[in-house]
Design a protein around this nucleic acid. Structure first.
Length: 490
RNA sequence: GGUCGCGUGGCCGAGUGGCUAGGCAGUGGUCUGCAACACCAUCUACAGCGGUUCGAAUCCGUUCGCGACCUCCA
């Protein structure tokens, strides 16, 4: 099997993956700020890093997957002037901030379960780690990279850059940052506009506040990831993931905070997924062009022509490489839906095939091609393309136009089981499992038998009527060579 | 304006120097009472221009178009 290569954002090239502490792997992914329902854009990083988590685990690594929940400190606007996102939503909904957090964290978890993403090993919450964050601020101050002003503490970017390189991840030069950062019209306590908040003094009306040596207040947004990744994965860990839009300033600030407090480069491999776009433009809350996952699942949105199953969304995302943008459209999702159906039908057929004495087709290159693709920076679209080639073979065998030896058949079955279900995390979308539904099975059996009798009498008007009526209840009837089968879809 | 990236066939989306990506859609056929599924065959491509090379979608230059980040964002 090929060695795993990962595109490391900070090196701007693919690098062989060598964990710091084999076979253990630390994986940190920036989680959501839970002030609203998750939208399609959110599904990208979590499906992407679910693939990373699943594949690393499959390869035998012991992965600790940490993904935070942000419930405090993430401001609506500028790091200095904006309102806290959670607090704002709480005001709009007239509830407690923690009610907002609970509601949308639950909703997020539901959506992630629907997308069949595995839950992280640890899911730390920012407000539960105030002490750790305060400790880190103290260290940054002790090391001379921060300053206090009016109860707030800021990171001194200019000072830090004298000893380290602020901008090494995003490829920015400090001069450009200092030059281009928006001026704050002298309203700010910051020495320089490029500086960012480590601790903010809370306004009197602010509910989300904690005591600290500097003021009653709350931590800056960037700090939580530094503090929590350090706590659960150590001062240095293997992989840090997140959306490309977090690359600057969020991840840049994280590196700075870690180095300023611990003196160590925290992350070995930085991974950034690209955006989901809509009409070529990034889907985002601030742009107002987003579609929530629940809206996609229900079809209840003006841009959504039909309900899309969670697995369709997952497959849609996996059919593109994580570092490419992927554009939302109904056409693309419908193509994904049909493609997924074909792939899963192939997987099912594969289990029913009989082996022959020998193979009439050569399947020896499929498995290596699949794993080479996955090991080449998690290239799921290539892996999927290989699986479709296998589906073609599977269907040929089913049609009696090709044969597979016992060994080859087993190899394909194992491959599909490993890749389709374990690694890509796809699954059948069957909601009504017929095994606990004897009544329905009995009824369907009666209907199908009756229809068979009608068919024999060439009463085709009636047989078609039965098929059409059942279709109205999302029950599909198919007359195959082996007999009539039925399926119920959502 | 600065930094970075992208532009592939009707649509989506891989590929980074020579060999059919794949999916969806289309067309013709096989199968079917008719469908659906499936199978076989088939079609359309690398934004423009210039260069390097025996050979470029792939490397270099340039023009045009689009996007991301530089405010919050997955």
């Amino acid at each position: 099997m090929a060695t795993l290569e990962i595109y490391n954002s900070i090196a701007r090239e693919k690098q062989e993956f060598k964990p710091l502490n084999h076979p253990y792997v630390g994986l940190y992914v920036c989680g959501p700020t839970v002030y609203g329902e998750a939208h399609l854009g959110h599904s990208r990083p979590y499906v992407t890093f679910d693939l990373v988590y699943r594949y690393l685990t499959f390869l035998g690594y012991k992965v600790r997957y940490v993904r935070n929940i942000t419930d405090v400190g993430h401001l609506v606007n500028d790091a200095d002037e904006g309102e806290d996102k959670i607090a704002k939503q709480a005001r709009l909904e007239r509830v407690e901030p923690m009610e907002v957090v609970k509601r949308y964290a639950d909703s997020f978890h539901d959506n992630m379960d629907q997308l069949n993403t595995l839950r992280p090993s640890i899911e730390p919450i920012a407000s539960g780690h105030i002490i750790e964050q305060i400790e880190m601020i103290k260290q940054i101050l002790d090391n001379g990279y921060g300053y206090e002003k009016n109860g707030s503490v800021y990171f001194d970017v200019e000072k830090y850059n004298k000893d380290h390189h602020y901008g090494k991840l995003s490829g920015r030069k400090i001069e450009d940052i200092l030059e281009n950062t928006r001026s704050l019209d002298g309203k700010s306590d910051k020495k320089h506009s490029a500086d960012f908040a480590l601790w903010k003094k809370a306004m009197p009306e602010h509910i989300m506040r904690w005591p600290s040596p500097w003021s009653d207040g709350f931590p800056g947004w960037h700090l939580e990831c530094s503090a929590m990744s350090t706590k659960y994965l150590g001062e240095q860990f293997d992989i840090h993931g997140g959306g490309m839009d977090l690359l600057f300033p969020h991840h840049e600030c994280e590196i700075a905070q870690n180095k300023a407090s611990k003196g160590i480069e925290p992350v070995k491999y930085w991974m950034h997924n690209n955006m989901i776009t809509i009409n070529g433009q990034k889907m985002g809350k601030s742009l107002g062009n987003f579609i929530t996952l629940n809206e996609l699942f229900s079809g209840d949105h003006k841009l959504v022509e039909q309900p899309y199953a969670p697995m369709t969304i997952r497959f849609f995302i996996l059919q593109a490489h994580y570092r490419s943008t992927v554009d939302f459209s109904n056409e693309a999702l419908q193509a994904a839906q049909k493609g997924l159906k074909r792939l899963l039908a192939g997987a099912k057929t594969l289990l029913e095939l009989d082996s022959s004495d020998s193979s009439s087709v050569d399947i020896s290159n499929i498995k290596p091609a699949v794993f080479n693709a996955l090991s080449d920076d998690f290239n799921s679209p290539i892996a999927i393309a290989q699986l479709f080639d296998a589906v073609k073979i599977i269907n040929s065998v089913k049609d009696g136009k090709a044969t597979l030896s016992k060994n080859d058949l087993t190899e394909l079955q194992d491959l599909f089981n490993d890749v389709v279900f374990t690694i890509l995390g796809l699954k059948e979308e069957s909601k009504d499992n017929s095994d606990n539904n004897e009544l329905v099975n009995g009824l369907m059996e009666t209907i199908i038998d009756t229809r068979k009798e009608l068919k024999a009498r060439k009463e085709f008007e009636l047989t078609d009527q039965i098929r059409d009526n059942l279709a109205k209840h999302n029950v599909q009837i198919k007359d195959t060579r082996e007999g009539t089968i039925w399926s119920h879809e959502k």
